Computed example of a mutant assay.
Amino acid sequence: MVKFNYFGHAAFLLDDGTHRVLVDPFLTGNPATAVSANEVDCGYILLTHAHGDHLGDAPSIAARTGAAIVAIPEVIDVCQAQATGELKVFPMNLGGSLTLPFGKVRMTVAHHSAGVPGGVACGFVIYIGGKVIYYAGDTALFSDMQLIGRKDAIDYAVLPIGDNYTMGLEDAAQAAQWLNTRHVIPVHYDTWPIIAQEVHRYKEVTEAMTRATVCIVAPGETLEL
């Protein structure tokens, strides 16, 4: 069993009972969360890009907990520059896979700016606790999502739906169809007025056009996958 702990915006923690994987830990300054960075414990941190609302507290959490950061080299450099002392890191790049004690991660393409010169944004396919979880990161809709769905039998797709900076409702529904995922967890919406969305409308549209069940998880809630 894997637990999905949602911290609001695009920050979440995957917990298989032994390993804890933190993703895009924007906590300090996140109006959608009541969790402090000092309260979070993890063994691994996955970062999709270097924008502040995704990189967030990664350097300080990694320094405090000894967690290893998994990201592209340019994003790792940003974390190293912000941390006191050396961090444990696993640099990757698009298309690469990495085997870790909890399972495996594969770095996928995302169509978005990176927040650091020379870098690229990414997503992750995460194998943990017998589940396959695709986190798109911040991205536009792109047709190669169909290839991701063919390569990996996705149990849960964590997709941004906020529009303006990422996919909106309609494109995120199309993404769910192309990925052929069994479930969708929408994220990256309602944090600020500019990305306010009707999440129940997204659930209605997506479930009408795909095989997926949309799981709406409020910040602070935990979903058993």
Rank of each mutant, 00 (worst) to 15 (best):
E198S: 12
A153P: 06
G56Y: 11
L47C: 11
I195Q: 06
V205M: 14
A71M: 10
E207S: 06
A83R: 04
V214G: 04
K88N: 09
T181G: 05
E224T: 12
T18E: 14
A212S: 15
K104N: 03
L169R: 04
K3V: 01
D16L: 04
N38W: 08
I161N: 01
D155P: 02
H19L: 00
Q80E: 07
N93L: 02
P59A: 11
I69H: 00
G149T: 10
C79H: 08
I76S: 07
P193A: 00
L47W: 05
S97R: 12
I128S: 07
I72A: 14
V116P: 06
A114Y: 10
E198Q: 13
K131W: 14
R150L: 11
I126G: 07
H54N: 15
V35D: 04
A110Y: 03
G168T: 00
G8D: 14
I185W: 04
V187Y: 09
T18N: 12
V23T: 10
N93H: 11
R20Y: 10
M1R: 11
F90G: 00
H49Q: 14
I161F: 03
H9N: 15
V40Q: 12
S60W: 13
A10Y: 02
D57A: 11
L94M: 11
F26N: 06
T33N: 12
V105Y: 01
P117K: 14
L55P: 01
G130S: 06
I126L: 08
Q82V: 01
T65V: 06
T99W: 02
A140P: 00
H111I: 14
D77G: 03
W192K: 13
A68M: 10
W178T: 00
W178N: 03
L179H: 01
A32L: 13
V78F: 03
E39H: 09
N38D: 15
T28H: 09
H51A: 13
V21K: 01
K203C: 03
A121M: 11
D41T: 12
K3G: 00
S143Q: 04
V35F: 10
D171R: 09
F102Y: 07
N5T: 10
L87R: 05
P193Q: 06
V105E: 00
L55D: 05
G149Y: 07
A67T: 08
